[in-house]
Design a protein around this nucleic acid. Structure first.
Lengths: 124, 124
DNA sequence: CCACTGATTCGACGTGTGTCAACATAGATG
DNA sequence: CATCTATGTTGACACACGTCGAATCAGTGG
């Protein structure tokens, strides 16, 4: 498949890696978004648009060092495979990264993504 | 627990009105969200999680006075009923308000909602 | 009252999404 | 190797969602 269009400021990035969404787009109030900008930015909002994912992200983000083991945050009322599924979505949206250390897998927040989203919503 | 829970700070509000979502919840990084907080906050993110809605919202937000006629922003590549559908979703999420003035309908941004979302994403 | 334009609602259709049980994989440990 | 725990993947299913054309509602003006 031909690569889905990526804005110039974004590095091409690897196939399945985070869709690299962080350093994009001016505040929502600055000018009307183009189709490409909207497509790109909507991914992040959509990723946080599910209650379970929002709780998982918040759990990771509020954990010490912005990092948490799956076992520490998987008590959100859904089955374990579902937790894994949502963490994968958050990773694909570029909001989280994961790293395996021994038996456990640790998820961390991608600081640039958080900053980027914050910038979208601050009119100042 | 009773039925669909509404956080104390939110007024019950009418059936179809904006789900009044603005003054809610600490930054995502402060502490893990509860189920109720996540349910509530996810509505806003979900509303902006569609490229067309994001463009519509951005078009209204960046227009003079944070207000725009439907006819001014409906050029986003989808049919006019679809535009109307998305604007309704944004309204239900508490991000926009609408007002009819003569022949045209004007949509405005709900400033508190924007501020509330910004607060969620600013760490300090 | 009737025609015209702007905007919403309705009904239908195809696709996407959240969920789970079952199975598979990775490391640790016996 | 066998086994146990911690995560991820697969397949299936019900439901939500985005989209459109057609019908409808709301104002304006002839």
């Amino acid at each position: 498949m031909s690569n889905t269009k990526v804005l110039p400021l974004l590095e091409p990035d690897t196939e399945s890696g985070p869709e690299s969404v962080a350093p994009c787009c001016p505040p929502l109030t600055e000018r009307p978004f183009t189709a490409e900008e909207a497509e790109l930015t909507a991914r992040m909002f959509k990723a946080l648009g599910d209650p379970v994912r929002l709780r998982l992200f918040s759990a990771v983000a509020s954990h010490a060092g912005g990092e948490a083991c799956v076992c520490d945050i998987s008590d959100v009322g859904v089955s374990q495979p579902t937790v894994s599924h949502h963490l994968k979505k958050l990773k694909e949206a570029g909001l989280l990264t994961s790293e395996r250390r021994g038996t456990w897998v640790y998820y961390s927040v991608e600081p640039s993504a958080l900053a980027s989203m914050g910038r979208l919503l601050t009119s100042e």
